[in-house]
Amino acid sequence: MPDAASTDDAELVSRLRAGDEEAFRGLVRRMRRALQKVALAFVGSPAAAEEVVQDTWVAVVSQIDRFEERSSLRTWIGSILVNQAKTRGARDKRSVPFSSLSPEEAGPVEPERFAASGFWCLPPKRWDDAPESLLLRKETREAIDRELERLPPTQRSVVVLRDLEGWSSEEVCNVLGVSETNQRVLLHRGRQRLRAALEHHRSGES
């Protein structure tokens, strides 16, 4: 069944095939964060990720006539990126991320905050601000942004795709090649770290 996204995709794809440069620029800008963060999960450095993104766009423009609209345009581009990134990662002799959950990705909340019984001994600190006022604060955004950058790259790419870019879990699983379960684990650990960053930021202020 065609939905709004696929109608938009169809229009965009025909503009791209017709050589509409502005449509292409818009796409490059919109997909910037998603592609950059996913590439970083596969390669060692921001510079290498940049090259992977670059190669992805070259591949996208040369294959755009072959896009069959069986998937959304963004997952098609995402899959091209992951293939490029895997090739680059293998060349740089890096292990494939997402194939297993690494030990750095330990439990979501710091274990010392729970008693042996599993109940909180250091419960999350409350604050009274309404959520809307949090959103408006530059320092709060910066604290979350900093923590996002500090997340393990696999967690970060899942959080960015799901929570910042609004991808569905199915899209994320297809593009990254992870199971639903592992996707949820990565998402949850990443989200809990953002929550902890917000908590520390807020309690540090008061």
Binding site: P131, L135, T140, R141, I144, L164, L194, R195, L198
Partner: peptide
Amino acid sequence: RQLDEALAVAREL
């Protein structure tokens, strides 16, 4: 609630 609030902030980045 903090989890939801952190995500609301993240969405505004």
